[in-house]
Design a protein around this nucleic acid. Structure first.
Length: 659
RNA sequence: GCAUCCGUAGCUCAACUGGAUAGAGCAUCGGUCUUCGGAACCGAGGGUUGGGGGUUCGAAUCCCUCCGGGUGUACCA
């Protein structure tokens, strides 16, 4: 059920005699912004009037005159410069609503032309703890996969794991120098993580140590700039004071951020140097960054010892990330990591050379392209391949294996340039039949508006983030005062289950509720709040529907019978509004697909939950005046519950029967 | 420097890609109801969509320009 499409068909017929671009004009149907203009509006008369050189209201009148739509809408109204306003007939809404009953797709028609769509998302580096930066790709990618699949597309999800990079050099180095084979064997996941941290800390120490001099210089020049700005402000004429204040504030910000960077580096150095054990280690492993790269290179060249270690460690690293996926309820059809493509990389480079696309420059093999300052480097001076190479190999493999119509890369927006290059190269490879999309997304910011970090400046672990949300959700949802109102009482297990659903849901919902391309501020308190634009509000609305159905002792089959017997009679505006909302799920999903923007569905669910609340407030079900009215209300409650549940499920969020 | 994204209510964010009086939620203030669970509902205030110009029936959206910010910029991913 996609109302704009239905209306569009009618307009196309009516427009056919006026223009040969009837399709384009018929597409100009929108929901109205204000209910007083009806439910939908068609905005085609104004542009069309220009094409045919006539008065827009006249054109609108002619369109309306030819329009056969009285089975769906009241008489269309022409308003303003030539808007055609459409109000659905309440009968039509009732009939449509009853057709949703018993339909497990909730009225969403499967797409007519299904596509095969590959979605590349999450893609963490194994052996490195997952952190806050992995939320967005994982949550957005999973939601897209669920929604597009539900729409009827053949979706292939692939987790392009970073399982072949420097982080393994780090672990291998750590194992060789700090590892105890027995301890690692006994508790591999934790021990490997520990080894990673030890080596990484030393590398960070070295980096920081090297950068301190230039950071100090940065602070100095920033402070000088502040001073200059202050002096300028003092001497400035009144007319320039405002501008001078602004540039002073800007200089102060820069100075602050320079100081922060310097402090972070100094802190990393001090942590190591103030600890005798660490200081000794740092001295012993002075060349550690180089050594780690060498271990990585040896692995890539097939060194038997390192390869054996890699094979031994990889499963444990996967266990580690799979635990997080289990908790998030995320699954993949394929997990083909970088290592899977290793043997194909040389071939890709050769192919690029043969096609005349790649050439040597400064010892590296590069693809130069118009419109880009820097080339795409596919092989380094030292012979190593890069992620551009892997991405090309991956693309090639996916085209052969999955024959997709679309490939979506759910990856941070900071990698835009990489994907522009990748797509440009792919284009020259003759891949124009597949739609390649970089589904980019913004950064998760802390309360201070800067990328989210812990107080000590490190990234926040994903698991501790989830733990925090669940814990907070439990405090809020399982408040002892509230719990006393439940009958039967909630046992500990149920409380845990609710906290998990609400806590994890809160994080996902908050992420998905923002347009993916914008940055957003992470605020746990607001996310798990019971009021506001939160998952808990939607989940709670669902729980209320279930309570009413329970009290009414009616299952969906009973309701279908009641409707067959009594029909659906709507007497209150809140009923009509809710019913109309319930018919719009497909609309939100189609819009979602157009922009790969899950916030479309989030907005829909919030609107629906609010419409339900209003209905719930105004329209008593059990005390309904007549059986007809009650049948209608039971239908609305039942379908509201089903659609809220389905919508949340399509976002990867669960519901609980009571909370 | 170049490229690119952004600037919307006090705060956090939307706005179906050019449509009517720019919407939600927090927060603030006021109101409703003997709860099919009040975690509710109704209402009010709050905006020159960073500034200025342009395009047209119509601009938060497109173009130009200035101001302010983020990000990326040859061998990391």
């Amino acid at each position: 059920m996609h109302l704009p499409r239905l209306l569009q068909e009618r307009f196309r017929e009516s427009l056919a005699s006026l223009t040969d671009r009837a399709d384009d004009y018929a597409a100009m149907i929108r929901p109205t912004a204000d209910p007083k203009h009806g439910d939908y509006q068609c905005n085609c008369a104004m542009p069309l009037s220009k094409e045919v050189g006539r008065n827009p209201r006249e054109v609108a009148a002619e369109i309306v005159d030819k329009l056969r739509i009285d089975d769906i809408c009241e008489t269309p109204q022409i308003a303003g410069p030539g808007f055609i306003n459409l109000t659905l007939k309440t009968d039509f809404i009732s009939t449509s609503l009853s057709s949703l009953l018993g339909d497990d797709r909730c009225g969403v028609d499967p797409v007519k032309s299904e596509k095969s769509i590959v979605i590349d998302f999450s893609s963490p580096n194994v052996a490195k703890p997952m952190h806050v930066g992995h939320i967005r790709s994982t949550v957005i990618g999973d939601a897209l996969a669920r929604c597009l699949r539900f729409l009827g597309h053949r979706v292939v999800t692939d987790n392009h794991l970073g399982d072949w990079g420097t982080q393994f050099g780090i672990i291998i180095y750590g194992y060789k120098h700090f590892g105890d084979p027995e301890v690692v064997a006994a508790n591999p996941v934790q021990e490997l993580a520990k080894l990673y941290r030890i080596v990484n800390q030393l590398i960070e120490y070295r980096k920081s140590k090297r950068s301190i001099a230039s950071l100090e210089q940065g602070v100095q020049s920033a402070e000088q700039a502040v001073q200059e700005a202050e002096e300028f402000l003092e001497g400035a004429e009144d007319s320039k004071k405002k501008a001078a204040k602004k540039s002073l504030a800007s200089a102060q910000r820069r100075s602050q951020s320079a100081i922060t960077s310097l402090n972070a580096a100094t802190e990393k150095v001090n942590v190591v140097e103030s600890d005798p054990v660490l200081a000794e280690r740092a001295k012993l492993h002075a060349e550690i960054d180089q050594a780690v790269l060498e271990e990585t290179a040896k692995l890539h060249q097939g060194d038997s010892e390192n390869l054996a270690l890699w094979e031994k460690f990889l499963p444990h690293c996967k266990d580690e990330i799979n635990r997080v996926y289990d908790r998030l309820g995320v699954e993949f059809d394929h997990t083909l990591g970088e290592s899977f493509y290793h043997s194909q990389l040389q071939g890709v480079v050769e192919k690029l050379k043969q096609a005349g696309l790649a050439e040597e420059s400064d010892g590296a093999i590069c693809v130069f392209m118009d419109g880009f300052d820097a080339p795409m480097i596919v092989q380094k001076q030292d012979g190593a391949f890069l992620y551009a190479t892997t991405d090309l190999a991956t693309l090639q493999y996916r085209l052969n294996e999955f024959n997709p119509g679309e490939i979506l890369y759910v990856v941070d927006t900071r990698q835009s340039e990489h994907f522009e290059k990748l797509f440009a190269v792919a284009d020259q490879f003759g891949l124009e039949h597949v739609k390649l999309v970089h589904v980019n997304f913004g950064t998760v910011l802390g309360e201070d508006g800067k990328p989210m970090k812990t107080r000590s400046g490190t990234l926040i672990g994903l698991e501790s983030l989830l733990d925090g949300a669940v814990e907070r959700a439990k405090q809020v949802v399982c408040d002892p005062d509230r719990l006393t109102t439940f009958d039967p009482p909630m046992d500990e297990a149920e409380q845990e289950m609710i906290a998990e659903a609400v806590g994890i849901g809160a994080i996902k919902f908050a992420d998905l509720s923002h347009h993916r391309t914008s940055d957003y501020r992470f605020n746990l308190e607001k996310m798990v709040a019971l009021d506001g634009n939160t998952s808990a509000y939607v989940q709670y609305s669902y729980a209320r529907t279930q309570k009413i159905l329970e009290n009414a002792k009616k299952a969906e089959l009973d309701i279908i019978q009641l409707v067959e017997q009594h029909g659906i009679e709507m007497t209150h505006p809140a009923e009509r509004n809710l019913a109309l909302m319930l018919m719009k799920l497909e609309e939100s999903l189609v819009t979602l697909h157009k922009d790969y923007a899950p916030n479309q569905l989030v907005d829909y669910l919030l609107d629906t939950a609010r419409a339900y609340s209003k209905f719930n407030e105004n329209c008593h079900v059990l005390r309904a005046e007549t059986p007809q009215i009650q049948a209608a209300r039971l239908s609305l409650v039942c379908l509201s519950g089903r659609i809220l549940q389905l919508g949340l499920q399509l976002l990867g969020i669960g519901v609980v029967p009571r909370m």
